[in-house]
Amino acid sequence: MPQFLEHSMTSWHGQQLLHQHSLVDQFDPRARILAMTLFALATVFSHNLLIPAIALCLSIGVALRANLDMQRTLRRVLAMDVFIVLMIVMLPLTTPGDALFHVFGFAASQQGFVQAMMIALKTNAVVLMLLALLGTLEATTLGHALARLRVPEKLVHLMLFTVRYLEVIGREYKRMRKAMKARAFQPRANWHTWRSIGYLVGMLLIRSLERSERTYAAMKCRGFNGRLYLLDRAVWRRCDNLLLLAAVGFVLLALWVSVGVSVNDVSMNE
């Protein structure tokens, strides 16, 4: 991946989008998750260009109101768009339909072009909204909110443990990597490099395993008996109802538009 698209893969703190306190922060995390889910489903399941276009405008609006760090947000959206661009190029050429123009003898179809546009709009809208509504949450807050939404506790704890120890293991990796550099190690395409990287990964696995054993021992010392506890005090307020209502409104709009479109299709066919 090019340098400018790279960001910390091991620290959630690095994942969290830096932003100033904003309108988005006053909503309860649960409301944000629910609204996000509704928004994403409505956008992804729509069959016309109108709803994804509206969705993208909405997410840009929310992202602006959320005071997201523009540079970092764009970097993340771009990282995803690299894959999307490939699809946009391929789809018109591979979808059968009315030819718009020809490339090296291959017909680029209008239907394929519409498909590609749709995918681009949908993915960008959903990802941008995701970064604005959920990317601004602390990982632990997200975990708590998921637990309160009755997501199985084991899954939530799996996520929280991952976030907790990703940072520690990431630090361990960086420390070992630095120690390698300090002894003049430079990755090259040779046997020595592959073997050293192998040692690094192996050592990281062993250390993580040992750490997990120590953590389990520490938990036993404090009387762990298979139950984990989450304590939080998020409060559902009126503005959370409003956020949810807005999301439901968007779903209804999407349904109404898609019903309208299919009725039009039927009448045109007649």
Binding site: T140, L160, F161, V163, T215, A218, G223, N225, R227, L231
Partner: peptide, 25 residues
Amino acid sequence: FLFQDPDDQLFCPTVLEDVAFGPLN
């Protein structure tokens, strides 16, 4: 038992949860 490496011991997301973990058990 206070472990050598605090990272081995602090596994809960928030401080309150970690300190309350023992008493809850």
